[in-house]
Design a binder for these strands. Sequence first.
DNA 1: AACAATCTCCATCATGTGATGGAAACAATC
DNA 2: GATTGTTTCCATCACATGATGGAGATTGTT
Lengths: 219, 219
Amino acid sequence: MASPLEKALQDPGSMKARILTSARRLFGDNGFSDTTTRMIAGDVGIDVSTLHYHWGEKQDLYEGVIGAVHEEIMERFQEVERRCRKADLGRRLEIAIDVMCDYLFANPEVANLILFGYFRKADHTAVLDVNITTYIANIAVAMGLAADQEAVSVQTKARILAVWHSVLNFISGQAFFRPMLDVAPETYAAVVKETLKFILVPAFTIDTAEALKTGSNNH
Amino acid sequence: MASPLEKALQDPGSMKARILTSARRLFGDNGFSDTTTRMIAGDVGIDVSTLHYHWGEKQDLYEGVIGAVHEEIMERFQEVERRCRKADLGRRLEIAIDVMCDYLFANPEVANLILFGYFRKADHTAVLDVNITTYIANIAVAMGLAADQEAVSVQTKARILAVWHSVLNFISGQAFFRPMLDVAPETYAAVVKETLKFILVPAFTIDTAEALKTGSNNH
DNA sequence: AACAATCTCCATCATGTGATGGAAACAATC
DNA sequence: GATTGTTTCCATCACATGATGGAGATTGTT
């Protein structure tokens, strides 16, 4: 569907791909407005106009980054779904937490990029909006919380959003929280996984039966 | 401690206070970089130089906003602490969720401002950092998860961070998630409270005894 | 070697932004 | 009513940023 993106991914050494890589990291670090095209060009070691030549305007490059990240995330969800077969709900949650944490800790800019998207009031929100809705439906089905992607109750959606946020925030706020907890980087990752499982697993494993039954009436 | 801030709060109709109010909302909506001093001045109905006359440079105004919000939050925590006396842990959590949700839904810019702080790599992070640490310690004590503010284990800190994030994200992402859940604003608030209690209460009420015992060894 | 296509850079523009100086309006005191 | 201190606005500056045009370099093809 995204032909320029495919072309860029074909050869990671191509100029277009190199720009995308730098843009991804810098946008993730500083957000859209605090990342200048000159910063990205400087990081790649090229001129600004070369950047514009390959990607058009800044907004297009940003959407290219979001698109690439989106594809990666969807791949991870498919991995979760594969590994979740024939496991109970508690185990499924643990698998999902492990897979997503491993991925996000290895690509910390991803969590930032997604969370930045919540704030931007720009026009591209529609794009990201669709993505998030897709994530939610995917998780619901993979977790066995909904029969198909169309029949996800409000409660289930809200609960998945809460889980998803919890994961993202711990990774996104890493630079902020790790010093606060005063632990080494590797320890931080372990603490995060443990905390997520501690908080999330009991709620779903204990209460799921009732939650699904009363899932369509809101208080 | 903050003398200019006190002066502004003394008279809500004063120019300095009016600027602070507009700045608070606009910074909350758009973040620091996407909010211009001209936007704020325009919202108040004054000239840019009037704004600079009262508040100095943009960064100072921003810190004024953060400071005011910080004071409000601390008041809420004190309220939680008062109302938590002689209640068990599950009930304490519910009280804390209710109080903080009511406050944040009534002042939605607050959640944005705090979350924006996670991302900004600017110099003021130290200020916010201290604030967050204070929040965490306060909650830990109010919840009865730690004896005093100095003796909070890594696990407890991480768990409180997770709770705090969950609350903030639902309010901050309201404009984003409410359409996704397709519910009315009042319903959204109810769903959020319910979801938070659903997810958070079981973990702490079931597991607390063991959690506190093994609170100092990770993994 | 000649040519065409692609790529990269230098110079430059238009615009928006943070910030300031100084003039004018206002308020308070005598 | 004059004087002094405070507040507000107009005009303007310096600078960073997004973006472009066109010249030069590079590569591939014949």
